[in-house]
Each structure stands twice: as C-alpha cells, then as structure tokens.
C-alpha cells in the first residue's frame, strides 16, 4: 500500500468522513475548503494523525501549510521525512 493510499484510509476513518470512501479522494484535490472540505479543527487532527501513524511531528506552520495542500503533497512530505 502506498503512503497516499494509507493516508486516504486513515483520513476517512479518523476524521469520520461519512459517505466518503478512500477511492473517492482525488490525490490532487485540496484537503481544505472546496476539495475534501476539511477545516481548522481537522488541521489539528491531521497533525495528531501524522504523529500517531507515521511518528512524524509537524511543528513548523509553514511546513504544515505546504504538506496539507493535498493527499499527494502530504504523502510526499511523509515519504521525504521518513527517508531523511
């Protein structure tokens, strides 16, 4: 399972995205606003989810803002941090 696929499954389950399946989530759709429709509380949940499932702490807001653009961006961020 790729990091993006794993992420989609985690997002649906942990953010309780009712009536959304992992397959419904577009890799490049924005996570916040128009795309998946997440909000500021979800951003906090996302920080917790990334730490819990991937052991990565996101402390820098600018870093998080870039990573939280889309599933593809977040997966790339996680893969990059895990490699380094």
């Amino acid at each position: 399972m790729t990091t993006a696929e794993k992420l989609k499954k985690i997002l649906v389950e942990e953010l309780n995205l009712e009536e959304v399946t992992p397959a419904d989530i577009d890799d490049d759709a924005p996570l916040f606003g128009e795309g998946l429709g997440l909000d500021s509380l979800d951003a906090v949940e996302l920080v917790v989810i990334i730490q819990k499932h991937f052991g990565l702490e996101i402390k820098d807001m600018d870093e998080g803002r870039t990573a939280f653009q889309s599933v593809r961006a977040l997966a790339a961020y996680i893969d990059g941090r895990l490699k380094s």
């Binding site: 509380l41 917790v48 730490q51």
Partner: peptide, 10 residues
C-alpha cells in the same frame, strides 16, 4: 496507547 500529544481534540 499513544501519549498525550496524540490525543484527539475532537
């Protein structure tokens, strides 16, 4: 299980 830093705000 995961420590206080991973506690869900929801």
């Amino acid at each position: 299980n995961d420590g206080d830093i991973c506690a869900s705000p929801t």
